[in-house]
């Protein structure tokens, strides 16, 4: 594998450029599907670091995104929190 294929894009889940590109090419998928197939963007930082890279890769493989939609949906909590914070503390 070349250097660039081994390059990590999602640092939290350690997903490489090569993995993302081959998955995107094989399935011609949306950003969401790419995320679910590879776990890119599903780590600790919530995709804050790799979101733009993933969007750009998808755009390259499958142009014409709808302008109103955010490709990788945001979900609460948008910051890492403890179970105690989100749940009821008894």
């Amino acid at each position: 594998m070349t250097n660039i294929e081994n390059m990590i894009i999602c640092r939290c889940e350690e997903v490489t450029y090569g993995q993302l590109l081959s998955t995107a090419n094989e399935h011609k998928c949306s950003a969401r599907e790419l995320k679910l197939r590879t776990r890119a963007g599903m780590g600790f930082c919530g995709g804050r670091t790799c979101r733009v890279s993933i969007d750009k890769m998808i755009e390259h493989v499958k142009p014409n995104i709808t302008p109103g939609d955010i490709p990788l949906k945001y979900q609460p909590p948008v910051r890492p929190v403890t179970f105690g914070t989100v749940g009821e503390i008894k």
């Binding site: 990590i8 640092r11 804050r48 670091t49 890279s53």
Partner: peptide, 12 residues
């Protein structure tokens, strides 16, 4: 705003 990186081999 947030920054986005341009990944480069060895950027980790």
């Amino acid at each position: 705003a947030a920054e986005y990186p341009i990944p480069v081999p060895g950027w980790t």
